[in-house]
Design a protein around this nucleic acid. Structure first.
Lengths: 212, 212
DNA sequence: TAGATTGTTAATCGATTAACAATC
DNA sequence: TAGATTGTTAATCGATTAACAATC
């Protein structure tokens, strides 16, 4: 493990996209592809593809290109998609419910083992075969089951307190949908923010300038 | 309008975050802030803040800093958050419903005027006071109401066809939640992708390397 | 005025692209 | 072998940071 020569985050963020495209090609029954062909499909440069992949070792073969199945599997390994990282979801409102139902956790490296909400109308219900527990039980649950990742689908105002509880309980990674900026200052945790609202504002800017 | 000296997308993508932080400071009753102070709160450099803001003109004052309310409003204008861009939502499953209910469209520059789904169990129901229509009606609806933006919360497999219909009907901007990569190749449309699945895979990578 | 802090230019850093020798 | 295409080094481009003169 940890061969770590610090691959840049820009590269890492492109891997899921490669993974998606390769998976699609695979489903079409394609066997091999060159960086040039792939670059045309993905609308990026062939140079970038080769440069990116070489951060992790030589997956290709001169004069031939890349074996799609092999490359797809390699990227899966790099991303850790075959892991089963124990994960809890905090907040089972509209958004939390959608995230729980919509995402294919088991094929993305995660195992959803607990769902929490503070609304008594939701507590006790089942989502994806998991009974929603009250947020008061987070600490005990973490002690018992040691989840490593938490998904935050709670309002900004609750995020600071809840994230502190989770960190104190050993949670190391956050998938954060709240508007609160969970910074990875706390050096040994990692945060992936999904700021949907920021994304929408960006679209607002982009749309302003087109057409009349 | 269109003073356009091509501000880079990196800068634009930081504006919503500035907007969020300034809004918070405003709610605390703060009046002014220097780039240094703000940089500490946001965990970025003061240089970057000044550089970013100066893409749009001098909002600050030497020796004083920035007036928070003023700057907040300026960024709102730049992003176009006071617009009311007519917008339709395609797909009212788990995710679509959550997006409709969860996002504050009216304060982000958008006006949600139509929701569509192809599932007869959903068609006819009301979400946010809007009656869900069948996807077959998209074309007619667009002719009548001329929405400029579409939010895609539909499966990958449906995205290509539906987006073509929408483009042909005059839709210019897409907020795309599907796994299909809507490329902005079609030069006069803009696309903001929200690839939640890619984000989750990135988190998988990040989490792999911490702890044990 | 003196002190603070911007606006802006210059320096650095990192990421992308181009080019080509290595090699299948 | 000849042709194709990688792996990798070098060149370019863009974004971030540092520095400082302008100025409130």
């Amino acid at each position: 493990m940890s061969k770590k020569e610090e691959v840049s985050l820009s590269v890492i963020r492109r891997l899921p996209r490669y993974y998606r495209f390769l998976g699609e090609l695979l489903s079409y029954g394609m066997i091999r592809i060159s960086s040039r062909e792939l670059s045309e499909k993905m609308n990026i440069t062939a140079s970038q593809i080769r440069q990116d992949l070489n951060c992790f070792g030589g997956f290709g073969q001169q004069g031939y290109g890349y074996n799609i199945k092999e490359l797809h599997e390699e990227i899966s390994k790099i991303l850790g998609l075959d892991n089963k990282i124990k994960t809890v979801l905090i907040g089972a409102g509209n958004l939390g419910k959608a995230v729980a139902n919509h995402m294919d956790f088991s094929n993305r490296g995660f195992d959803l083992i607990g769902i929490f909400d503070k609304n008594d109308k939701i507590v006790g219900k089942k989502i994806k075969d998991i009974q929603v527990l009250h947020t008061d039980n987070i600490k005990d649950f973490c002690n018992d089951y040691k989840p490593k990742v938490a998904i935050l689908c709670i309002p900004k105002i609750a995020t600071e307190e809840i994230s502190n509880i989770l960190i104190a309980s050993g949670v190391k990674g956050f998938w954060n949908f709240s508007h609160y900026d969970l910074l990875g200052i706390n050096s040994d945790i990692v945060v992936e923010n999904v700021h949907m609202s920021d994304s929408l504002m960006t679209l607002s800017y982009l749309v302003k300038d087109i057409d009349i």
